[in-house]
Structures are given as C-alpha cells and as structure tokens.
C-alpha cells in the first residue's frame, strides 16, 4: 500500500507501471475535483463521470504528457478534462448542443440552499455559468467553485496567469450582469460615472 502522503508525481509513476494501489490513492485524491469540474462545465452527471474516468485512463496511457516543471498533477488533470470535454462537445454538436435548458436542471439542482430566493439565485448562476463561453466557464469553475490557484488554472488552460486573471474578471462581470434583475433602463456603470466626473 503506498504512503498516502506520497507526492502525486511518484504515485503517477507507480500507477503507470501498473500499481493499482497507487492508482487508487491518486483517484481518491483527484477524482472528486475532476468530476465536479466536468459536471459544472457540462451540467451532466453521466458525462462528468465519463469525463473523469477518461482523464484517469489518459493519465495511464499518455507516456510523455505530464511535465513536473509545468505544475502540479491536478492542473494537468484539469487540462485533460477540459480537452476531453471540448472534443466531446465538438463530436456531439450535431446531436445535442449544450444549451441553457440542458444545464438548467441538473440532478440535485440548487439543493444546497434552503431559502427559495437563494435557490433561485443559485439556479440562475448555474444557468449563467452554463451560458458563458467555454474559456470563461472553465476559469470561473476552477477559480471560484473549485478554488484552485491561478497557477493551477493557468496550467490547465495552457495560458499565462495574467490571462486567467483577466478572464476571471470578465467572466465575473458577465455573471453579475446576468444575475441583475431586469430593469426598464440600464444605469451607467460606476466606472463610467467616475470617468465622467473626472472629465468634468
């Protein structure tokens, strides 16, 4: 039985050599996060389970995929999951395009909030996340829901940390706008008010 405190890199090496116990420890350590990421991204529990399993299969089969110098194993796994989902959506786009209806009522929707108003807000956020472009959605899920570091997210997304920050900022603004209740006329944003004031 491998030491539970063993680093991911060593466990990965042993799992690739056929050590089922090492694979088990890696699975216990990362499966839940990968599953949640895939489910938040897709809004589909079955697809998320399939994605998470495919991630581990790819982990076993890819010989030269993981580079320890580029970051942690977790970021690498999220990257595989993101690529797998993108590929899957491209393949399935002819038959079942992801839309708001699909993500609107995933199993156990808004089960965490007792207050009906909050439940509605959570459902609205879920719909809003599902409607985001994929690269914004992944950043929101990883940074805000999975609470991963910018470095890990940058590794998973294959882009610099600065890009992740700007995408997150933009995605939050989009989400906040979607959560805003409908109004007869849109007021000026605080930034525009301040700019106007400075120019006065």
């Amino acid at each position: 039985m491998p030491d539970p405190g063993q680093p991911d890199q060593e466990l990965l090496r042993r799992a690739r050599a056929g050590d089922e116990e090492a694979l088990g420890v890696l699975y216990q350590r990362h499966y839940a996060a990968i599953y949640r990421f895939a489910r938040h991204m897709s809004g589909d529990a079955t697809l998320a389970e399939e994605a998470a399993q495919e991630v581990f299969l790819a982990l076993l089969r890819r010989r030269d995929g993981y580079d320890p110098e580029r970051g942690a194993v977790a970021g690498y796994l999220f990257g595989i999951a993101r690529h797998w989902l993108s590929r899957r959506w491209r393949q399935d786009s002819r038959w079942a395009p992801l839309n708001e209806e699909v993500a609107a009522a995933p199993p156990g929707a808004a089960g965490g909030a007792a207050d009906p108003e909050r439940r509605e807000t959570v459902a609205a956020v879920r719909r809003a996340i599902a409607a985001l472009p994929e690269h914004y959605r992944a950043v929101v899920v990883l940074c805000e829901i999975e609470e991963r570091s910018y470095e890990e997210v940058a590794q998973a997304m294959g882009c610099p940390v600065g890009t992740i920050r700007s995408r997150l900022h933009r995605a939050r603004a989009l989400l906040a706008r979607k959560l805003e209740p409908a109004r007869p006329s849109q007021p000026a944003s605080p930034a525009s008010v301040l700019t106007a004031r400075c120019q006065a």
Binding site: H40, G108, A110, G111, G112, A113, R118, T121, V122, A124, V125, R126, E144, I145, E147, L179
Partner: peptide, 8 residues
C-alpha cells in the same frame, strides 16, 4: 451563489 454551488 457560487459558495452555494460549491457546497452543493
């Protein structure tokens, strides 16, 4: 709302 999603 994000925290609720996380908890769920």
């Amino acid at each position: 709302a994000l925290a609720d999603l996380r908890a769920e």
